[in-house]
Write a protein that binds this DNA or RNA. Structure first.
Lengths: 134, 134
DNA sequence: ATGCTTGCAAACTCTTTGCACACCA
DNA sequence: TGGTGTGCAAAGAGTTTGCAAGCAT
């Protein structure tokens, strides 16, 4: 954990380690509030302000991402910085991560063949809206 | 304009007509604030609260969409309810609409062939992050 | 005339900021 | 030790809510 922070050029403080661990443990796309709660479960002396500042630093150095969310009125963070897609259930407002290398290949291929004008794509993320079926 | 509102099951009030017009005029993905400014340019007596309420109604009946945005700390709306994708410039934080029927077909095809487990997709939106080149 | 809409202002939520103290390198 | 990070509380931005008055049907 310390290593990851050091590698990212951040001081390995107690709080940052806790917050990074919490991010990795929490499923889905936690809000700052949820990260804070998770951190507090172990160490009840970390302030919410610090969580915000720390998450911002993490985003800045690429340790996490902010994820887009049309419904939420708050920011969500994602510790999984690998490329992946999202299933969005319009009933439950749930966001589920979805990985599919075949899909990735298909999309990359498409843009490799017929490029975009004036735009160099770096990463792709497909948002799939729909409903859960059981 | 009245027709569109009536068809959506909303009363055609002066304010709603103005707000709908403003949405159609404004480029990109305006915030509630931007819509309000646009409305005020014509009729300086519409309150921001009404803009919020109205935009919510519009989203509810499908006249507009909320668009996801990882950076913004405010909600953005999109009057273009047809299926389209987004180019996101990581330099300028700009979001550009992008349409490509071929791409749509490719994606629909992919999921038609090998469906998702426990999920019925309704719409797809590809977020393409990258940088502008000139 | 009835009931949905509006305007206003206050309340609320989420996030940021300023500053003194604490801690890592 | 020096400079960065933290906690706290207050401020800020964006959004929602409650209610009396207004308007579309």
């Amino acid at each position: 954990m310390q290593q990851r922070l050091a590698a990212a050029g951040l001081r390995a403080t107690h709080q940052r380690i806790l917050i990074l661990e919490s991010l990795l443990v929490l499923p889905g796309h936690p809000t700052a509030e949820q990260v804070h709660r998770q951190v507090m479960a172990n160490t009840p002396t970390v302030s919410l302000g610090t969580v915000y500042k720390t998450l911002d630093s993490f985003v800045e150095v690429g340790l996490t991402k902010r994820v887009a969310s049309a419904d939420a009125q708050c920011r969500r963070y994602d510790s999984d910085c690998s490329e992946h897609h999202h299933l969005y259930c319009t009933d439950t407002k749930e966001i589920i991560d979805y990985c599919n290398p075949q899909l990735d290949a298909l999309i990359r291929d498409f843009f490799a063949k017929q490029g975009l004008e004036n735009f160099q794509p770096h990463s792709f993320s497909l948002h799939i809206a729909g409903t859960r079926v059981s």
